[in-house]
Amino acid sequence: MAETLIEDIGFAAADGWPLAGTLYHSQAEATHAVMMSAGTGFPRRFYRHFAQYLTDRGALVLTYDYRGIGGSFNAGHDFANIEYSDWGRYDMSAAVDVLARVAGDLPLAHVAHSVGGHFLGLMPNQSRLLRHAFLSIGTGYWGGHHWRNIPKELYFWWGLGSYSLWRHKAVMPIGGWQGEALPPRLFRTWRRWSHRRGYFQPDLEGALQPQAYAEVNAPIRSWIFSDDPIATRASGRDLLAVYPSADTELVVRSPREYGVNRIGHEGAFRPGREALWDEVSDWLECGL
């Protein structure tokens, strides 16, 4: 197995916000390139084991932090006014350009976790990504989640979230929230969307303009896990519906199918899930 070279890089988002990323290279010649888009509040380092695995399978991999998260926090910039959609419109599109520049003629694929699959229609260059593997991706609408998770979500939205905004002017990693600190504007948008059956769809003709969700036509395969209380079969199906021109497939898997006891909403990227990673990588490679 060839040695992996790990290189931290900096690059600018489409509107100039400084972003941090990590490139995973193999000394062996790569056959394709993969962009890894994170879930809300997850720093890029969370995906390092998965990125290393993909590199061992012949990929050139880019992980990156959205603005306000991890290495892209940048205290001198306007953290308070980061909007949820900025992550897609500016940050994800910039990551595509960086990966394309580094990858040269290699075909580009995308692996997305949670919100990483929500904003393809806001990226003016999304057509450069030839396949999308979604892991644990559904809408944030609480009514589509497992009923046992609803009290926890209401506490997050209106208890912890409201208190943290009042006390800290941001949603801090306190009181059960284990992600990175979230900007106040972003959190309020996420909360508003998550209380609507249509999630962000009512904003497609308003606040989310310009958008081109109907132009996303690369194949999307979405993995939903039976013990994930957030990305359920219902919420996963609702999210795929915002990509009407894409060839979409939703598959529901049990953790036991991969020889583990738990996957949940974030466990797909933890070590020990290599059987799942094999399946994801095989699907990506077969279409490239």
Rank of each mutant, 00 (worst) to 15 (best):
G41R: 01
R197V: 13
R253M: 07
G140E: 08
L239F: 10
L60Y: 01
Y258P: 06
V102K: 08
R262I: 06
L19W: 00
V216D: 00
V115Q: 07
P219I: 06
R233Y: 07
S72H: 05
H195T: 15
D8V: 11
F269R: 01
E266H: 07
R196E: 12
A13S: 15
A20S: 12
N125S: 10
T248C: 13
I69P: 01
L129N: 02
R256K: 14
P244M: 13
F50E: 00
D56C: 11
G272C: 11
W17M: 08
Y24E: 06
L204A: 08
P229H: 08
S136F: 01
R188N: 09
V260W: 02
F187W: 14
G121M: 04
E257T: 04
I230N: 03
W87S: 03
D91R: 04
I6E: 09
Y24G: 01
E180F: 00
H32N: 09
T31W: 02
M172R: 15
A12V: 12
A241V: 09
V61P: 01
V260K: 04
A231K: 00
D282Y: 03
R262A: 14
D227F: 06
G117A: 07
R185M: 13
R48S: 15
Y24R: 05
L250D: 02
A268Q: 01
W142L: 12
S164D: 09
R256Y: 06
A103I: 07
W166H: 14
R262T: 12
G88C: 03
A241W: 04
W166G: 11
H25W: 13
W193T: 02
G236H: 03
A207D: 15
L160N: 07
L120I: 09
G117H: 00
V111M: 02
E257S: 11
N81L: 09
R44Q: 15
G144H: 08
R191S: 11
G206P: 00
R262Q: 14
R192P: 01
F46W: 08
Q178R: 13
S254H: 15
A14H: 07
I82G: 00
R253G: 02
G21D: 04
I230H: 04
V115I: 15
A28E: 15
Y64G: 03
W193C: 03
E249I: 04
A112L: 04
G179V: 03
D282K: 09
L208P: 04
A212V: 09
G159E: 10
L186E: 10
I150H: 15
Y47T: 04
F11A: 10
L186H: 08
V171G: 02
R67I: 05
V171L: 12
L130D: 06
G70N: 12
I224P: 00
S26M: 05
A95C: 10
H118F: 13
L122R: 04
A80R: 14
E249C: 09
Y258A: 08
E7V: 13
Y258L: 08
E274H: 06
V260D: 03
Y155R: 13
E285K: 12
R148W: 13
V115E: 04
R262K: 15
G198D: 13
R197N: 10
T55K: 02
P244K: 11
A59I: 05
D228G: 03
Y213D: 00
